[in-house]
């Protein structure tokens, strides 16, 4: 393989990883019946947490931990409103996205004012040149989620909760507790995806830097028909398209920048139009649950 081909493969892996990781979290949540469109905001707070803590401590581990923690924290706010207060998940998710955008924007401008010298967070160490440790973490995560959902007792209970919460409850499955746990897991994954963006891909923080990646991950869950392997294939497809964009640009093709940036959203919309109708969503997705005694 020539240098350009290798660069394309590496860029594909790098750009696919955050999408795949975020999508795994959303998958587990949705399988339990929780539709979290706040995933974009969860990723963003993860990215900011990784940046701020990375700059302050210089530690990749602490930065990643902060990202996961902040993702969980914001996911807990979402879970409380949606699961306990039975607020609408779409509206709540939109508010979570807005909260993350405003919150990280305010914090970034106050903590890193323009007069401060430019700082960058530590880079994640490489497994082999060009491939960060995060790729290994992502692969392990996908395998773990696949096994969890299809081969374990808890996975069965999660799926039952998403499909028919009432029936699951009657079987003695702790519906609320499972939904909470799955939502927090989704927050952790989204936060990790944000950390990957900052510590592996961009080495900086920019306001609103997730730029719709959370929504693309959400679309991948649908596109992949709620199955881990197909979601990973989708993530690679999008990462590849993304990588190709940059390569074309670097090769000097005269494509207007805005149109280049537009392609992932157009591609997602087309993919949704082709496949969304076919995916079988969990029966009780986005429906609130009240235990009848």
């Amino acid at each position: 393989m020539d240098a350009a081909g290798l660069a394309l493969v590496l860029a594909t892996l790098r750009l696919s990883t955050p999408l795949g990781v975020a999508a795994m979290g959303e998958l587990v949540g949705q399988r339990a019946g929780v539709l979290n469109i706040g995933i974009e905001g969860l990723m963003l707070v993860g990215a900011f947490g990784a940046f701020a803590v990375g700059v302050a401590t210089g530690s990749v581990l602490l930065a990643t931990g902060a990202a996961v923690g902040l993702g969980c924290l914001l996911a807990a706010i979402f879970a409380w409103f949606v699961l306990n207060q039975r607020a609408d998940p779409i509206v709540t998710g939109t508010a979570v996205n807005l909260l993350a955008l405003g919150g990280t924007g305010s914090a970034y401008r106050l903590l890193f004012p323009p007069e401060r010298p430019i700082v960058s967070p530590p880079a994640v160490p490489d497994l082999v040149p060009g491939v960060g440790v995060f790729l290994l973490v992502a692969v392990l995560l996908v395998v773990a989620v696949a096994i969890l959902l299809s081969r374990t007792r808890i996975g069965l209970e999660i799926r039952a909760t998403g499909e028919r919460a009432e029936a699951a409850h009657n079987e003695g499955i702790p519906v609320m507790r499972l939904r909470w746990a799955c939502t927090l897991f989704g927050g952790a994954c989204a936060g990790l995806a944000g950390a990957i963006l900052v510590l592996w891909i961009s080495q900086s923080f920019v306001e609103g830097m997730t730029a719709g990646r959370g929504f693309i991950a959400l679309s991948l869950v649908l596109f992949g028909g709620y199955r881990p392997a197909r979601i990973v294939a989708g993530a690679l497809l999008f990462g590849g398209a993304n990588a190709l964009q940059f390569q074309l640009q670097a090769a000097g093709f005269e494509i207007p920048y805005a149109l280049l940036l537009m392609t992932p959203y157009v591609l997602t919309l087309i993919v949704l139009a082709l496949y969304a109708g076919r995916a079988h969503a969990p029966g009780d997705l986005a429906r609130p649950f009240v235990a009848r005694t």
């Binding site: 039975r86 609408d88 405003g102 924007g105």
Partner: peptide, 28 residues
């Protein structure tokens, strides 16, 4: 010198508190 984007935090919280404590859930 307070970032103007802080307003988005107020907006987000208004949304959360409006739906979290008031709106009856409609069938979806």
């Amino acid at each position: 010198h307070v970032p103007s984007v802080t307003v988005q935090v107020v907006e987000a919280l208004v949304i959360l508190f409006s739906v979290g404590f008031a709106l009856p859930r409609r069938g979806s």
